[in-house]
């Protein structure tokens, strides 16, 4: 690693101020950033750790029924504390990485990084969640901006994520067993006014909504409703683990499994 200073503010205001200096970067749980730094793929002058900010920790249910998760909340805490209010989201959090990774990695860190094979982006997009930063609220549909791209401005911090809780939901991940990321994952969320489907791990532009499936499932929430749909291989990721056609196939398979699990 190149040399850098590290600060550990205890308030959002202090963190925002610290991030105002040149070449400063936020540090969530570090489960992606620290390996990146070790490979010298990033060279910040200063890291601002968000792990000491109490107001960014924890899970609660708001008056409007939305599930609110602090941006610095580790996956293990979401897996435990969101289980009653939003079981599909808790199950997703409980399948990220391994137990030690889940004790450090955070929801805000995952969303700020927007890895094209990460799990949380699928939950956020399928749920129509709201990303609350120190400066504004961003709708999920406006937040994700291509592979590793987001609507976040320089120095902007995710302080909370607000999830509307669907009537039924499931996340089904086809595990890439070495990395434990999704080779392809589908999050299906059924709300009173329709169904949302988000796919991760498959698209070259990162997480995306599968609108044809949403229309079909909003009409009839059964795996069979997907039977006549086909997914184009154009724009899918291709790597040594799977071809474009393989991933396109998995999109449909994993969505059908998610519908079956949610409807069951």
């Amino acid at each position: 690693m190149y040399s850098f200073d590290i600060e550990r503010p205890t308030t959002i205001a202090d963190a925002v101020a610290a991030l105002g200096s040149d070449e400063a970067q936020a540090l969530g749980g570090g489960q992606t950033l620290i390996p990146t730094l070790k490979q010298r793929l990033a060279a910040p002058a200063k890291l601002v750790s968000l792990s000491g900010i109490a107001e960014m920790q924890g899970v609660c249910v708001a008056d409007d029924g939305a599930l609110c998760i602090g941006g610095a909340t580790p996956h293990a805490v979401v897996a435990r504390e969101a289980a009653a209010a939003y079981p599909a989201l808790a199950a997703l959090a409980g399948q990220i990485g391994d137990p030690a990774v889940r004790n450090r990695g955070t929801i805000g860190g995952s969303l700020a990084n927007n890895d094209p094979a990460a799990c949380y982006p699928a939950a956020v997009l399928a749920s129509g969640a709201t990303i609350v930063t120190n400066a504004r609220s961003i709708a999920a549909d406006d937040y994700f901006d291509g592979m590793f791209g987001t609507a976040l401005e320089e120095g902007e911090i995710i302080v909370e994520v607000r999830f509307p809780v669907p009537e039924a939901a499931s996340y089904q991940k086809f595990l890439q067993p070495a990395s434990r990321f999704a080779l392809t994952g589908a999050f299906v969320a059924k709300f009173a006014d329709g169904v949302r489907v988000a796919i991760t791990g498959a698209g070259e532009e990162g997480v995306f909504r599968w609108s044809e499936a949403e229309t079909a499932l909003s009409h009839e929430f059964r795996p069979d409703a997907l039977m006549d749909l086909s997914v184009s291989a154009d724009g899918m990721i291709e790597d040594l683990h799977g071809s474009k056609a393989y991933r396109a196939h998995l999109v449909k398979v994993m969505t059908a499994r998610a519908v079956a699990a949610a409807a069951g």
Binding site: I6, R8, L27, G30, Q31, I34, P35, K38, L47, S49, S51, A76, D98, P99, A100, V101, N103, R104
Partner: peptide
Amino acid sequence: CDTSQCGACVVHVDGKAVKSCTMFAAEAE
């Protein structure tokens, strides 16, 4: 491995298992 894959470096921080090769000392202040 020093890349947070292998788990040989697991310690407990405030009672939670973490990979100590993927956490800065300053974060354990």
